[in-house]
């Protein structure tokens, strides 16, 4: 317990969850076969909108974060209507360019405080601790201080959001819209001729990705207290892409696994921190060469499913071993 209450680990968990949410954002767009490299840009829009709304307009946090997502969505509409007409490479470059334009604008605006970025953004943890204190638990509970309670509450809220998004993505993939997405990803032309309004669904997927990225940005802003334009540059876009490439983008678990691995890796391996970008680069190249579908693909899941259902004995053992591993 002591170990888990360590602020360092709590922070790590929040970062893992935020990255997992970003993983879902790129997954949603990719599920129609569109590679958007603009999610770092959408994230920054969400982060700045939410931060500025709380800082300058006094909007409460719980309203500011969704508004950040909405702002990202609005921008996605402007950028998406011409770009979702584009296929593959053009879309990737156009969205990358969009992220760059957003970054330069943020760098130059007064309200965003330019290169210095925004600091002392209202913190979610502090807000929640105050709430808990007002609830009569100012002294903490069971040896856990009110600050720690705040941090736990932050993690719970983030986990709830992530949980909902996973639920959303899973339900989506087995619904009429999800099938349309999958059909577009498999063969856009055949999908169109099968009666699917491909343009509409591609735009919808683009919006959903932007909204989720915007939310992740807003959450990140209120957890790190500071945001600057550098946080959302090319490297951020590549990092989000990496979640999907490493984990896989067939099923929602892929990018989540990618996000978890890539967030934990630099913390666990010292040399991984030092050579982080090089390792990232190598992962991208190696995955494309040897396992372009990512670590988890549809067939990996199918394999596990058959293992768990068709061979009860082995499946039982499997479950046991899987439970005991953390």
């Amino acid at each position: 317990m002591e170990f888990l209450l360590n602020p360092y680990y709590m922070q790590l968990i929040t970062f893992i969850i935020i990255n997992a949410i970003l993983g879902i954002s790129i997954y949603l767009t990719l599920s129609t076969g569109q590679l958007s490299l603009g999610n770092a840009g959408f994230m920054s829009v969400g982060a700045y909108t939410s931060a500025l709304l709380t800082l300058k307009a006094g909007v409460p946090l719980y309203a500011a974060v969704p508004l950040g997502g909405a702002a990202a969505c609005l921008l996605a509409a402007i950028i998406g209507i011409p770009t979702t007409r584009l296929r593959g490479i053009y879309l990737a470059i156009a969205t990358l360019g969009f992220g760059e334009v957003v970054r330069v604008i943020i760098l130059n605006l007064k309200i965003t405080n330019g290169a210095l970025g925004l600091s002392s953004i209202p913190s979610m943890g502090v807000m929640l601790s105050k709430g808990i204190a007002a609830f009569g638990l100012a002294g903490g509970i069971g040896g856990i201080s009110v600050r720690q309670l705040g941090s736990i509450a932050v993690i719970l809220i983030l986990a709830l959001i992530l949980g909902f998004l996973i639920f959303f993505a899973l339900r989506l993939s087995s619904s009429r819209l999800g099938r349309a997405f999958a059909a577009i990803k498999a063969d856009e032309h055949a999908a169109e001729v099968s009666g699917i309004d491909t343009r509409y669904y591609k735009l919808l997927a683009f919006f959903m990705g932007a909204f989720v990225a915007g939310i992740a940005g807003g959450l990140a802003a209120h957890i790190t207290f500071y945001i600057g334009p550098k946080d959302f540059a090319y490297h951020r876009a590549v990092e989000i892409l990496l979640f999907a490439v490493l984990g896989g983008s067939d099923v929602v678990w892929g990018p989540i696994l990618g996000a978890v691995l890539l967030t934990v890796l630099p913390e666990v391996l010292r040399f991984a921190t030092e050579y982080r970008e090089m390792i990232y680069g190598a992962i991208l190249v190696l995955m494309m060469a040897f396992r372009p579908q990512g670590l988890i693909s549809e067939s990996t899941l199918a394999l596990w499913r058959t293992k768990l259902t068709r061979q009860p004995k082995i499946a039982g053992q499997d479950k046991v071993t899987r439970r005991t591993t953390p």
């Binding site: 593959g88 490479i89 590549v238 892409l241 990232y280 995955m287 494309m288 372009p292």
Partner: peptide
């Protein structure tokens, strides 16, 4: 997919930069 070489060269780009 046509996106694979794009992603692979993105990998090369950040590798070289670092």
């Amino acid at each position: 997919s046509e996106l694979a070489p794009l992603i692979s060269t993105i990998g090369v780009s950040i590798f070289l930069e670092s």
